[in-house]
């Protein structure tokens, strides 16, 4: 079991950020077992921009929660930057999430009593970042999300799109290994959704930040470079494998 201080791992470009082996989550296990997630293998590398799609009840959110360390699988292991998070205690998981994972939720979930700036700063304060560094980073992040003029505005005075952009800035505040976004565009109009996706795509491209979305939104699916389809808790399709297969096929044909 690693110490809390060693819970923040550094991943090389192209190295595995998430490695999930045989993970399953079973509900009503004492009566009729229902597999929310059934024997899923998932390998995500740094810099990926991946969408997790599937019908309602297919296990997207459950899988995302387990990868995010919010829920534990009943079977299997999840290795993030070399740390098996299924072996961590609840308190260790809290610290692990703080240092490694950024979250963007469907309903923004900003703290209403804090301003936009304070919402983002809050995470940095939890990480014990000093004031100077915090201020620098807040300004940089708000520039990136295009809300430099809304620093001292409370969430209730921001539009849905603006709130979600602040949520992205908050997710980035802790310099996480990857960002998990659960239906981030579900509550946004087209223009806001498009704007948010632009920002996230740019961050992915320029700063090589890894994104894993759970989504129904075709706009997100269209922008994703990899799409994993879940059906009844199993991976029914993974475009990465398709692409690899196509690559293999074309290579063997060339040879």
């Amino acid at each position: 079991m690693p110490g809390l201080s060693s819970l923040r791992g550094e991943t090389e470009r192209g190295a595995a950020v998430i490695d999930a082996h045989n993970i399953s989550k079973v509900y009503n296990s004492k009566t009729i077992p229902v597999y929310a997630v059934n024997n899923v293998h998932l390998h995500l590398e740094r810099g990926e921009f991946t969408a997790l799609v599937g019908p309602s009840g297919s296990g997207k959110t459950t899988l995302l929660n387990m990868i995010g360390g919010l829920d534990k699988p009943d079977e299997g292991n999840i290795i993030i930057n070399g740390v098996d998070i299924t072996k961590l205690s609840a308190n260790e998981l809290i610290d692990f999430r703080l240092r490694n994972i950024g979250f963007v939720f469907q309903s923004f979930n900003l703290i209403p009593v804090l301003t936009a700036k304070e919402n983002v700063e809050f995470i940095m304060q939890l990480q014990k970042m000093n004031r100077e560094e915090r201020n620098k980073r807040v300004i940089k992040l708000f520039k990136e999300i295009g809300l430099e003029d809304k620093l001292n505005v409370r969430p209730s005075k921001l539009s849905g799109g603006q709130q979600q952009r602040v949520a992205v800035a908050r997710a980035l505040a802790s310099k996480p290994q990857f960002i998990l976004a659960d239906e981030p565009t579900a509550n946004l109009d087209s223009a806001s959704a498009s704007n948010l996706l632009d920002i996230m795509a740019l961050l992915n491209k320029e700063e090589n930040i890894t994104f894993l979305f759970s989504t129904h939104d075709q706009r997100v699916i269209d922008r994703a470079r990899r799409v994993i389809t879940l059906v009844d808790g199993r991976i029914a399709k993974d475009t990465a494998e398709v692409n690899t297969n196509i690559l293999h096929t074309s290579l063997s044909e060339t040879n």
């Binding site: 995010g68 919010l70 308190n91 809290i94 610290d95 999430r97 703080l98 240092r99 979250f103 939720f105 309903s107 979930n109 703290i111 209403p112 995470i123 939890l126 990480q127 908050r170 802790s174």
Partner: peptide
Amino acid sequence: TREIGMMVALGTNKVK
């Protein structure tokens, strides 16, 4: 409830 859940999810420990 949702807000506190979010705070814990983001890494706010029990002491805080």
